[in-house]
């Protein structure tokens, strides 16, 4: 599981690759720290290469969303694959994020 973070002046762009399962979520929590640091900016998460997500991964997404909300920011999720989109739907996470395809 890898994450590429690109911090711009008025936004942050992150690209996620691999499987965000429980095993990977510990490392991912560390890797995503820059996003939390820049939560005052709009954040865009590109998930086109994200293969899997479990509830541990969803927790990190929610942590980021809560941090963003504290600064009045927003989190946009892009290019979710259908299975992951289904997970977002089932958990009601579709109401918490902006989605773009």
């Amino acid at each position: 599981m890898t994450i590429d973070i690109n911090i711009l002046d008025h936004s942050v762009l992150a690209s996620l690759q691999g499987r965000l399962d429980t095993a990977a979520s510990t490392q991912f929590a560390t890797d995503m720290q820059p996003l939390l640091d820049h939560a005052d900016k709009p954040i865009v998460l590109d998930c086109s290469a994200l293969e899997f997500i479990s509830s541990s991964g969803l927790r990190l997404f929610l942590t980021l969303r809560k941090a963003s909300l504290a600064h009045g920011g927003k989190v946009t999720v892009r290019n979710l694959n259908p299975e992951i989109k289904q997970v977002f739907t089932i958990t009601g996470f579709t109401t918490l994020f902006e989605f773009e395809d």
Binding site: S54, S55, K66, L69, T91, G92, L96
Partner: peptide, 20 residues
Amino acid sequence: PADTTLGVAERPIGGLGIHL
């Protein structure tokens, strides 16, 4: 069962595993 209708602020971290 987890309440999947809550907004960002009210959402607890966790509790979704069994629901899934």
